[in-house]
């Protein structure tokens, strides 16, 4: 990171999660956007961190159900066999 804006780079890093999650106020967002327009390293850190989280979400398929055999054993262990419905998959 560039030496002359070291403090601002550190400040940006502290607010990075809140910024990416959209939990930061408008004024702080504006300050960060102004900073990353001038600081290429911080711009890269923001973009690649955001992309990292996007990739985590994209590769995590929430529709992945429980494997049928795991489900059957679970219901059996809990004595819930009679409630075993066909898998929703």
């Amino acid at each position: 990171m560039v030496e002359s804006t070291h403090e601002t780079c550190e400040g940006l890093l502290g607010s990075l999660s809140d910024y990416i999650d959209g939990d930061l106020g408008a004024e702080l967002c504006r300050q960060i956007e102004k900073h990353i327009a001038e600081c290429e390293d911080c711009r890269i850190v923001v973009d690649t961190t955001r992309k990292t989280i996007d990739l985590v979400h994209a590769s995590n398929d929430p529709q992945t159900g429980l494997p049928d055999d795991v489900r059957n054993r679970l219901y059996k262990r809990l004595n819930l066999d009679d409630y075993l419905k066909p898998s929703a998959k």
Binding site: M1, E10, L13, G14, E40, D41, I44, V45, D47, T48, R50, K51, L55, A58, S59
Partner: peptide
């Protein structure tokens, strides 16, 4: 302890199919 970034390669614009390839995952 603050983690200071040390890698400044901009890979964020790589195509999605490369980022989400089996190897990427």
């Amino acid at each position: 302890d603050q983690i200071s970034p040390t890698q400044f390669v901009d890979w964020s614009a790589l195509p999605e199919d490369e980022l989400l390839s089996a190897e990427g995952k």
